[in-house]
Amino acid sequence: MTPTRRRLAFIGLGFLSLLVASALALTAFEDTLVFFYSPSDIKEKSINTDKQIRIGGLVKNGSLKKSEDGITVRFEVTDLNYSIPAVYRGPLPDLFRENQGVVAEGHLSKGIFRAKTILAKHDENYMPKEVADSLKKAGKWKGESKN
């Protein structure tokens, strides 16, 4: 094999593997992309209930309830226009509390969001970017807490 042909083969092989990788990535995107919705989005759009989604907003004041077993919690996620009831089984992140921003991943079932994970946030003043944006969209944004 001459050096030029080798270089061509090298580039060809490179493209081939990139092609395979793109095919892999595209099929993976189809199944694994997790879309983010605000409570308003969920009210307005019809959302496929089989798919994993993320929802985000504030934990509605007065909505947080712990059930008998001490592990299952119910709360409502709100963007201050609409609220979606959510249920989660497991220990809550350290900073999870009412009136704080929350992002949860799970799926919708009969209008109730069944959260599989609640994303932990580590900073008292921290507002997840997605939540801030969805509050802005709902016209309820009160500005940065800092500055």
């Binding site: 099929t27 993976a28 694994t32 992309l33 997790v34 983010f36 993320r54 944006d133």
Partner: peptide, 12 residues
């Protein structure tokens, strides 16, 4: 807004 999590990376 989307998130790409472990399932994507596991699959690719």
């Amino acid at each position: 807004k989307v998130s790409v999590g472990p399932p994507f990376f596991n699959a690719t």
